Every structure is written in C-alpha cells, then in structure tokens.
Measured scan of single mutants.
Amino acid sequence: HITLTNLITEETTHVVMKTDAEFVCERTLKYFLGIAGGKWVVSYFWVTQSIKERKMLNEHDFEVRGDVVNGRNHQGPKRARESQDRKIFRGLEICCYGPFTNMPTDQLEWMVQLCGASVVKELSSFTLGTGVHPIVVVQPDAWTEDNGFHAIGQMCEAPVVTREWVLDSVALYQCQELDTYLIPQIPHSHY
C-alpha cells in the first residue's frame, strides 16, 4: 500500500527527490524536513527503477548522498536516519524571529523540533538559566525595514544566528558551530 502526497507528515516514510546520477539534489523544504524527520530521502531513480523491475528495490542503493550547497557526498540523510536517538538540537531552545522567505515560519519551527529543539514563540519566553541553551534564528535578507535584527541582543541574552545555521546543520545532520553564522549585535551602550 503506497500513498503519494506532496505533504510531509509524521506518517511519511520516504521523501523522493529529483537528483543527478550521483544522487545529489537541490536543497528544498521537503529535503530538510525529510532529513530532520529521519525519513528515507531517496532519488526518484528509486521509483523509476522499482517500476521498471516491478519490485520495490532497496532504498540504500538510492539514498540521497549530498546536495548542491553542502557538498556532493556528506551523507546527511543517512546520518539522520541512523541517529534518531541522538537529535542534533537536543538541549537547545530556538526562537525563529522575524520574517522568513521561501519557507513558512511554522515549517522552520517544525524542522528544529524534529531535530530535538524546544521552540519558543517570543524572545521573552526563553527559560534562561535552566541548562537549556537559547538561540535566536533570523533571516536578515528578509527584513525590509531597518536592520532591527542587529538589536535583538538587547531583548534577550541569546546568540543570534542566520537561518543558514539551521539549514546547514539539518542538511549535514551535524549541529554546526555558531561562530560563522552569528549576527553582530549592537551593544547596549549605543542607545
């Protein structure tokens, strides 16, 4: 019994991606959610070859190996599938703050939850000092008015990073160091 759908849910078992011959794909929301959820992320060749051979072929032979941004053979989907007991964002409290493009905020929040993070909706909701690490995620190029994202640091004691930190961490299924993704914050004294 196979159901085809464009939506990823808890029940989804396989995410089928358009890939090149070496099982490398573009980074899409579907790709990120498939990895975050520990699903099989496979090339569409799995479907076409299975139909051709009239049997369901082994997914291992068709698993996506990499993507056009993070590298052609990083094995993120395999790492995620085999590490669902070791979520990459466990112990983190993440607030997805401000506008985002090409990806609804609720989907970004679901993605970080699938990776083990707790989501907070407001900067004031962080449970500071409880052994949980707060992180604010923003997408600077989605902000149309002044660079308000440079002043988020005044509203909460949390590192502010770009959305790329989430996307790179999920694609590779390895929590990336914050340093290269940090957004400089204007210190309090400048006000």
Results as ranks from 00 to 15, higher is better:
H1W: 14
I2N: 08
I2S: 11
I2F: 09
I2Q: 12
T3L: 12
T3C: 14
L4Q: 00
N6V: 06
N6K: 11
I8R: 01
E10G: 09
E10K: 11
E10S: 13
E11V: 02
E11L: 07
T12N: 00
T12R: 00
T12A: 02
T13R: 01
T13Q: 01
H14P: 01
V15L: 13
M17E: 00
K18V: 03
K18L: 15
K18A: 13
D20K: 01
A21H: 06
A21S: 14
A21T: 08
F23K: 07
F23C: 07
F23Y: 07
V24C: 15
V24H: 05
C25A: 12
E26L: 15
E26T: 08
R27S: 03
F32Y: 02
F32H: 03
L33H: 10
L33K: 04
G34V: 02
G34D: 02
A36V: 13
G38P: 01
G38Y: 05
W40H: 02
V41Q: 01
V41R: 01
V41L: 10
V42C: 08
Q49K: 15
Q49S: 10
I51N: 10
I51T: 11
E53T: 12
M56G: 03
N58V: 13
E59P: 09
E59Y: 14
D61T: 12
D61I: 02
D61P: 13
R65S: 13
R65V: 08
G66I: 00
G66E: 00
G66F: 00
D67F: 00
V69E: 04
V69A: 09
V69Q: 06
N70K: 13
N70I: 03
G71R: 04
G71Q: 05
G71C: 12
R72C: 08
R72G: 13
N73E: 15
N73V: 03
H74D: 06
H74C: 07
Q75H: 05
Q75L: 13
P77E: 01
K78R: 07
A80C: 13
A80P: 01
A80L: 00
E82F: 15
E82T: 14
S83I: 04
S83A: 10
D85A: 11
R86Y: 11
R86L: 15
K87Y: 08
I88P: 04
I88T: 04
I88E: 01
F89L: 09
F89P: 02
R90G: 10
R90T: 07
G91R: 08
C95Q: 05
C96P: 00
Y97D: 04
Y97Q: 10
G98P: 04
G98E: 05
P99H: 03
P99A: 08
F100V: 13
F100W: 06
N102S: 07
M103L: 08
M103Q: 03
D106E: 11
E109Y: 06
E109N: 08
W110L: 06
M111Q: 05
V112F: 09
Q113E: 15
A117L: 03
A117R: 00
V119G: 12
K121E: 09
K121D: 06
K121I: 15
E122Q: 12
E122L: 11
L123S: 15
L123Q: 11
S125L: 06
F126S: 13
F126L: 13
T127I: 13
G129W: 14
G129D: 10
T130K: 07
T130P: 15
V132M: 05
W143L: 11
F149W: 15
H150I: 14
A151G: 14
Q154W: 04
Q154S: 12
Q154Y: 11
M155Q: 14
M155A: 09
M155R: 15
M155K: 02
M155L: 04
V160M: 07
V160S: 11
V160W: 01
V160P: 03
E164G: 13
V166L: 13
V166Q: 02
L167M: 13
S169C: 09
S169R: 02
V170F: 03
A171G: 04
Y173S: 04
Q174W: 09
Q174G: 14
C175G: 13
Q176G: 03
L178R: 09
D179A: 06
Y181L: 02
L182W: 11
L182F: 10
Q185F: 05
Q185A: 06
I186S: 08
I186N: 04
P187R: 06
P187E: 03
S189K: 05
S189R: 09
S189M: 13
H190M: 12
H190T: 15
Y191A: 13
